[in-house]
């Protein structure tokens, strides 16, 4: 299959294959991305996160449909956790997006976290680039908002939607602990349920304590499954984008995102190099056993490792 040609002629198979190759760290894929890097940066990237059961996939489904009505092409990357024990995963987000799967202007890709160090974030970055090159106008990245790797993924988005839901109790605490800072738009889904008002109020209160710029993230009540007020949510996303552009924060974010990506790739390369080295060289083995025997401490051992790399 000629992937370059396929990408440019809109062949979904080529796009799908390239994403796999990126995910599998295929050298050829990185070559293609290097070559086509100039074509990236056109798509709007939107992160969607929130606790399990909040209805993220349904929200994504409805937003995508609204955008399709406006003639926009939509890419979706849905991330689910990989089992740390078996390396397998069940990726079930498509269940909520059944009608989108045959829409020619939509591309949905499920992805497992695969547990590799920094691997997911890299794979997700890669997938977004591929979908961007493939000509998607909007790209959604959907993750479960719990771990650091999810936060990393969401960082590459222009706008992050935090989906909350009434009646999950302690989740507000979890939001507060981790993801509050990165939410640009808050959606209270299933807002016909008891406790919706309270959830919204709590979010507003937390936002009061969390002022980081002149932009204040809005809190929007929706019922995604009935498509109620999802248009308002999209409006808020658009407004946030306007703010990003006007305030100059967009270029700052892009810069940060690129910086993060470079550092991620670098870190990953370093870790890999060290891993490879530790298999072949007695140098690292020696450092480890010296530390075990208390002849060295981990700080000194790490410093020696840095020195060793520098000198080469």
């Amino acid at each position: 299959m000629d992937i370059r040609a396929g990408l440019q002629s809109g062949d979904k198979r080529a796009c799908a294959r390239l994403i796999s190759m990126v995910e599998n760290e295929d050298e050829q894929a990185i070559g293609i991305l290097k070559e086509l890097y100039g074509l990236t940066g056109k798509a709007r990237v939107i992160g969607i996160t929130g606790p399990p059961g909040a209805g993220k996939s349904t929200v994504t489904d409805k937003l995508a449909k609204l955008l399709r009505q406006q003639g926009k092409k939509v890419g979706i990357v849905a991330v689910d956790p990989t089992s740390p024990f078996t390396g397998g995963a069940i990726l079930g987000d498509r269940v909520r997006m059944t009608d989108l799967s045959t829409d020619p202007g939509v591309f949905i890709r499920s992805m497992g976290t695969r547990g590799a160090l920094g691997g997911l974030s890299k794979a997700a970055h890669g997938a977004v680039k591929v979908l961007d090159i493939f000509g998607m106008d909007y790209i959604f990245i959907e993750t479960v908002g719990v771990g650091q790797s999810e936060v990393d993924i969401v960082r590459l988005a222009d706008t992050v939607i935090m989906v909350a839901v009434p009646g999950l109790g302690d989740d507000i605490q979890a939001i507060k602990a981790g993801i509050m800072e990165i939410g640009d738009v808050f959606a209270v889904n299933k807002s016909d349920r008891d406790g919706a008002e309270r959830t919204a109020t709590e979010l507003e209160m937390m936002l009061d304590f969390n002022i980081r710029s002149q932009y204040r993230p809005p809190v929007i009540n929706i019922i995604a499954k009935d498509n109620k007020d999802v248009d308002k949510l999209l409006e808020a996303v658009e407004k946030h984008y306007v703010y990003l552009v006007n305030s100059g924060e967009l270029s700052q974010r892009k810069k940060n995102s690129i910086k993060n990506e470079i550092i991620d790739i670098f870190k990953y390369a370093m870790v890999k190099a060290i891993e490879e080295k530790s298999q072949s060289s007695s140098f690292i083995e020696q450092l480890i056993s010296d530390t075990v025997d208390k002849r060295l401490d981990p700080y000194t051992a790490a410093a020696k490792l840095v020195e060793e790399f520098r000198s080469r």
Partner: peptide
């Protein structure tokens, strides 16, 4: 009425 959306938990 609309249609029911399946809950899949595996």
């Amino acid at each position: 009425f609309g249609e029911y959306q399946q809950t899949v938990i595996l």
